[in-house]
């Protein structure tokens, strides 16, 4: 769309002089290029620097494959749990009034304001050898920290608020008349949820899940604290990227990193679509 045409149908009666507008657009685009586009381009450029064969070989390495597997397992546990929690919490908070609701909302948001390093540390303090349950766990030969369960726990912690925080405002804005109508017409509680509520919040759920998943697969700080960095055993993809990078194996590091960058791009695309759908749905109501 040309600028001239756009400014003629602009709803703003007043705008800045032509050169100010272009100056601001240029500043914004240069800033975003330097900070966002260039890093994104660099990931792929570094990954393919030595050609496609080297790229594919780096991905086919057994340690890489096992890190991909661990990341997928982690996300497969963390995301559904937080999805279930998000939907349940949103149902309680958005559809009912009770004392302490604001406090509950703040507590749900807590994991976002805690440094990832602390998110990992708290599990070490509980389940680690020097931790509360450490001696008991060792007696029974159960490993949580520096093993897969610790990685999953830390991931659940850092991705905890995503679904809930997306669904609560959405469900609040939709009210509860539709559910009430369904109940009056004789639907059971579950029927009401699956046939009335769920279609209404479908895109909100997709939005929350996709962001939750991106963070679950990409989390570094928290997982780094609880993982123990055992190659091929407790390394997730981001941790594997770190190891390869620290070994000066840059091409392999960026090859594996490019997988995560792909994931980020797909996440952004789905997120944009979901946002648009949610907005559309809210306008229809």
């Amino acid at each position: 769309m040309s600028i001239a045409k756009a400014s003629s149908d602009n709803r703003y009666t007043q705008t800045e002089p032509f050169f100010v507008r272009w100056f601001l657009i240029a500043v914004a685009l240069i800033f975003l290029t330097l900070f966002l586009l260039l890093p994104l381009g660099a990931v792929f450029s570094q990954a393919f620097e030595k050609g496609l064969t080297v790229y594919l070989d780096a991905l086919k390495e057994p340690d890489t494959l096992s890190s991909i597997k661990l990341t997928l397992i982690t996300a497969a546990v963390a995301v559904p749990l937080n999805l279930f929690f998000g939907v349940t919490a949103a149902w309680a908070i958005a559809k009912f009034n009770f004392i302490g609701k604001n406090l509950l909302l703040t507590l749900i948001d807590l994991p976002f304001s805690v440094s990832p390093v602390i998110s990992g540390l708290i599990y070490v303090l509980i389940f680690g050898l020097q931790g509360w349950m450490g001696p008991w766990l060792q007696e029974h030969d159960i490993k949580i920290v520096f093993a897969v369960p610790g990685i999953i726990l830390a991931t659940i912690f850092v991705t905890f608020p995503f679904v809930a925080r997306e669904l609560i405002p959405l469900m609040e804005s939709q009210g509860k008349e539709e559910e009430e109508a369904a109940l009056v017409l004789g639907a059971t509680g579950l029927q009401t949820f699956f046939r009335v509520t769920l279609p209404n919040i479908k895109w909100g759920i997709i939005y929350g899940v996709i962001l939750c998943n991106a963070r679950a697969m990409g989390e570094f700080g928290a997982v780094s604290v609880v993982s123990g960095h055992i190659r091929g055993m407790t390394n997730t993809v981001p941790l594997h990227v770190e190891i390869l990078y620290n070994e000066y194996n840059y091409t392999a590091a960026f090859a594996v990193a490019s997988l995560l960058a792909f994931l980020a791009l797909i996440t952004l695309a789905i997120k944009t679509i979901a946002e648009w759908k949610v907005r559309q749905q809210l306008n229809n109501n």
């Binding site: 990409g218 700080g221 770190e242 590091a253 997120k271």
Partner: peptide, 14 residues
Amino acid sequence: DLPFALPTAVAGIT
């Protein structure tokens, strides 16, 4: 929103 979606380790090495 890229910084939200791009894992921090990837951003770091890049």
